[in-house]
Nucleic acid binder design. Structure first.
Lengths: 223, 223
DNA sequence: TTTTGTGAACTAGTTCACAGCT
DNA sequence: AGCTGTGAACTAGTTCACAAAA
């Protein structure tokens, strides 16, 4: 095993690779739970329907984690990838927008474990500010965003606001120094350099999916 | 303008292109709202930070919608793309899993307009079956999935169930004849041929985003 | 032998640049 | 003139296949 050779600018790593790292960690956790101590890239690929060369290439971006002729040590590799993704420390997340989706996300278990914690939920509706979600997250005034982001060292914003408000809220997030935004609002907007945005547009996902649905076999239509 | 030449197997259209079609429709709607009747691919690209050649290539997959020397007629192009995406008829969607996320999705406006309607929300928890969400969607027994899918001509499943239940529920969806699944469960699972799955894994999105966050400048560290 | 790590080959996606139409 | 539609060039991502290591 060799430590990563050079500092490596993460921005040069493709989002495809970064996403797969995350998948690998999850797969490795499954193997660990099954008591598997060791895998070759070939076994790993077969088990999770991936390509073994791709796994090796992805890992090679960050170092040499395997032993030739043997394979990878499951928990060691998991530890390495977890560290590469920065999941070995907790990042604080702010959710902006305390509507149905924002509250559901605040209460969603997946966001509250394994490297992330919901620091606060923000809204601009006086009727919501001060309340708590089902799992006890406070709803705060979005006017205090900047102050709380700094005070609580928040690193990630999750935007769950209506389309009309999204651009203005995104601007506030950037002004507050946030460098990562997970955007659920149905709005495309170009982030300034140094700020990374990931759009999770439910409507577009649904429309894309719909595009591939075979037409209902109208009576007598060819298959 | 020329009609699409050949029947064209939609499966050969890349998901990148399909996703952009959806984006184009949204952009065209914005132009229409601004009273713009006409665009060239160049204007369109500049306005929404896209590449004009890409727009033309994407459109060329489906026909010739422009006029050389002139450009595209906004509402005509929107109408064409809407039809290509099948958004000119309403597709019925079933949401499986009436937890926080499932309920939020059921109540989410974006899923209830422009080509989609929430036909039902399913769960296996007797305590939830029979209740209604805030906006009045009935929670039904997932055991009746197959029957209701057929009866109500449901075409799309949205999976919002816990990871442990996802594989079994996905199997039921396929058995019920559903050909499109939008999966929010943090589980990778390989769909049988003819069934299209789109994974929206919130945890993986967050982890991928976290990967790119520049390290907090530890005292004295180089930029 | 087995399996990694990696250059080379391949495939897919994007952008360029221009012929051809209006 | 201006702009579309499209082959050609380019870029990025994936897979192959093998030399080097254990």
């Amino acid at each position: 095993m060799k430590a990563p050779g050079l500092p490596l600018d993460r921005r040069s790593v493709s989002e495809f690779t970064a996403t797969r790292l995350s998948i690998y960690v999850r797969c490795l956790a499954a193997l660990e739970a099954d008591g598997v101590a060791h895998v070759s890239s070939k076994d790993f690929a077969r088990r999770f329907d991936l390509n073994s060369a791709q796994i090796r290439k992805d890992l090679a971006t960050f170092g040499e984690f395997g032993v030739r002729g043997v394979g990878y040590e499951v928990s060691e590799l998991k530890r390495h990838l977890t560290s590469i993704l920065g999941l070995d420390r907790t990042r604080r997340v702010a959710i902006i927008g305390a509507g149905h989706l924002g509250q559901a996300l605040a209460d969603y278990g997946g966001f509250r474990s394994g490297g992330f914690s919901i620091a606060a939920l923000f809204d601009n509706d006086a009727g919501k500010i001060g309340m708590k979600t089902r799992t006890g997250v406070d709803v705060r005034d979005v006017a205090d965003l900047s102050r709380i982001v700094e005070r609580d060292a928040i690193e990630i914003a999750v935007l769950a606001v209506p389309a009309a408000a999204a651009a203005e809220v995104a601007r506030r997030c950037v002004a507050a120094g946030l460098k990562a935004i997970l955007n659920f609002a149905p709005v495309r907007w170009n982030a300034p350099p140094g700020v990374r945005v990931k759009n999770v547009d439910l409507k577009i996902n649904l429309e894309t999916l719909a595009f591939y649905i075979p037409n209902a076999p109208t009576k007598g239509a060819p298959a």
